[in-house]
């Protein structure tokens, strides 16, 4: 399964959030989705998931628009804002209503609770969960339909070091099973460890679509000293920020 974004554009009254964006997310590897705050990462994800309508262009999963999928959770699992929970609904009931929408059986709820280490808190209300546990619940919800595509928006937020290692290995494992994994993050060091491939955007436009290794090499300092992904990212997006301030004058 592939995610294809072509000439995707989203304009609001206040300006352009996504500007003629084209990229493809391939299966079998973790693709990092990077960009400074306000670059349009979350908007792009919302457009892929059919939550917002594009002004122009299209986003498809395996050639089909998300909104045309009859049981979308069985092909695409997504984690957006982990705090999107009803405070007095239990962990298990949250997964249960989601499962019902797509005709997913009761047994699968137990499986994802086990897989995310949430089985022990299944009866707890969402409001009693820590941010890290909410993230795990969000991952459990994304895995519910055993989807071929996973889209995770900032999944390491709020996780303790153990949780960070857990989600890193989980994402790598899912990709190794042949799934398509798109993960947005602002934590460069984490992306350097997790993502094989990078899609970098700034001000809604594509800045780079390349392997992590090549990206670091291409944006290394000219003096030949070692480069980190973080430095490479700052060089690339710094230029886009300068371009913005130059353009507005």
């Amino acid at each position: 399964m592939v995610i294809e974004v072509s000439n995707l554009t989203k304009r609001y009254r206040g300006g352009t959030a996504v500007d003629d964006l084209t990229f493809t997310v391939e299966p079998g590897r973790v693709t990092g989705f990077l960009g400074p705050n306000g670059a349009g990462k979350s908007t792009t994800i919302r457009l892929i998931l059919g939550l917002d309508r594009p002004t122009g262009g299209s986003a498809t999963v395996n050639g089909r628009p998300y909104r045309s999928l009859e049981r979308p959770l069985t092909s695409v699992g997504a984690l957006m804002d982990a705090g999107d929970l009803h405070p007095t609904r239990s962990v298990r009931e949250h997964l249960r209503w989601l499962a019902r929408t797509n005709g997913i059986g009761e047994r699968r709820i137990g499986e994802v609770l086990e897989a995310t280490g949430m089985a022990g808190v299944a009866r707890k209300h969402a409001k009693t969960l820590s941010l890290g546990m909410k993230q795990r619940l969000g991952v459990a919800a994304a895995l519910l339909g055993d989807p071929g595509v996973l889209i995770l928006d900032e999944p390491v937020n709020g996780l303790d070091p153990e949780g960070v290692v857990w989600i890193r290995n989980l994402m790598k494992g899912l990709a190794a099973e042949g799934r398509t994994v798109l993960v947005s993050s602002h934590l460069m060091s984490e992306m350097a460890l997790t993502a094989e491939h990078l899609v970098v955007i700034g001000r809604g436009r594509l800045l780079a679509d390349t392997s992590t290794k090549d990206f670091i090499a291409a944006h290394a300092p000219a003096d030949g000293s070692g480069a980190s992904l973080e430095e490479a990212f700052m060089r690339l997006t710094g230029a886009s920020v300068e371009f913005r301030s130059g353009g507005s004058l």
Partner: peptide
């Protein structure tokens, strides 16, 4: 958001 992602 989760509702509409599950029932587009």
């Amino acid at each position: 958001r989760a509702s509409l992602a599950a029932v587009p």
